[in-house]
Design a protein around this nucleic acid. Structure first.
Lengths: 196, 196
DNA sequence: CTTGTTACTGTACGATCGTTCACTTACATA
DNA sequence: TATGTAAGTGAACGATCGTACAGTAACAAG
């Protein structure tokens, strides 16, 4: 039977190395980090971490850290499930919000919301919307649209009459373009930050 | 007068290198990337990019890319201002959502919201809340709390009677702990992703 | 033209890189 | 205890790393 290797400890060591240095360690640095005297000793653990997706190999042959290590937030279950007890030092993966939210980095922009036209969709003034340019909006997608000269945030829709824009606020009504309508982009995510 | 150097082009080249390789280039790779025949030629542009904050130098002497290059979203103005014309190829910095939202990575967790008790605060079922453990909640902070055995998302408050938890839903009422109340963490941000 | 400054080239250097090989140590099983 | 497998050590290899130095090319000012 193969001996048990403490991988979660090594993952934590890789996390702190990345936080301190901002880069992936070399084999020699990993040997020192893990407490080995020879850098060859890390080939075993590295192979396992590659299989588990914690490490990558680039076009040069150096190891690269994946978001499972470099990510800044640990993904847990639902609110109902509550928090894990601080005692259990389990193997928790981290994720990267950028990678989770952004599909096409070159076409994705962040805009600040002003106005309350989408308040009932949970989009408040001051929120950030992550907008992707260039796509074709589907029914009920939230879009950034320029309607008769002014930029707004609305639900996109189409019916027999043509294209329309719906607010998510009972105080406003459905709008249809009189002259021009241009879609700036489709809202892919909403981000709200509390505190200053 | 010093000759003009095209820095924004080099920044774009560094962005595409990072996207392709997932790492920072060496001096030799930068020489090839920028079209120089000698790697010494890049020392000049690199020095300027270091000053402008696009590059860093690590404890080894290799260059590191900052979020101004590796970030995945470009921060623009407000929705009202609309989109910049695609024609203008200006120097736009990118930001990193993780770095923007997360202050203490080791204490930050992501939970999925279930239930509609905070619906009027713009937090819907299925949203992700970014929760920071270990802080002391202030008046009207949104917290993950275990009230009499069950984990919920509520506004935190204190008055002469003691601690209470307020929902953001007219269908529910203020609650006060009968036996125990433990705060799991403070909600620092809300993230909603549209589409699958 | 000449001169001075800057941008760039080409070569060389020690250090470190990842990898390979031979060898020793540790330990479960028989 | 003896045996076999895996883990870890230590030395060596060519390749690439960042840096330094001398020299050339480009160009503005005189």
């Amino acid at each position: 039977m193969p001996r048990k290797i403490n991988l979660s400890e090594k993952i934590e060591q890789l996390r702190s190395f990345h936080e301190a240095e901002g880069r992936a360690p070399s084999y020699a640095e990993m040997a020192e980090l893990f407490g080995y005297k020879s850098k060859n000793a890390v080939y075993g653990p590295v192979k396992k971490l590659l299989q588990l997706g914690y490490l990558d190999k680039g076009s040069d042959n150096r190891v690269q850290l994946t978001t499972k290590i470099t990510g800044s937030t640990k993904l847990l279950g639902s609110v109902q499930a509550g928090f894990p007890s601080p005692a259990e030092e389990e193997l928790v993966d981290t994720i990267n919000l950028d990678q989770y939210l952004v599909r096409r980095p070159e076409a994705t922009y962040l805009l600040t919301v002003s106005g309350d036209s989408m308040i009932e969709a949970g989009i408040q003034p001051g929120d950030l919307v992550l907008v992707e340019k260039g796509g074709v909006p589907k029914q009920n997608d939230i879009v950034v649209a320029q309607l008769d000269g002014e930029w707004t945030l609305k639900y996109f829709g189409k019916d027999a009459t043509g294209v329309y824009l719906d607010p998510a606020n009972a105080a406003y009504t459905r709008m249809r373009p009189e002259r021009s309508l241009s879609i700036g982009g489709i809202v892919r995510a909403v981000v709200r930050k509390y505190g200053k």
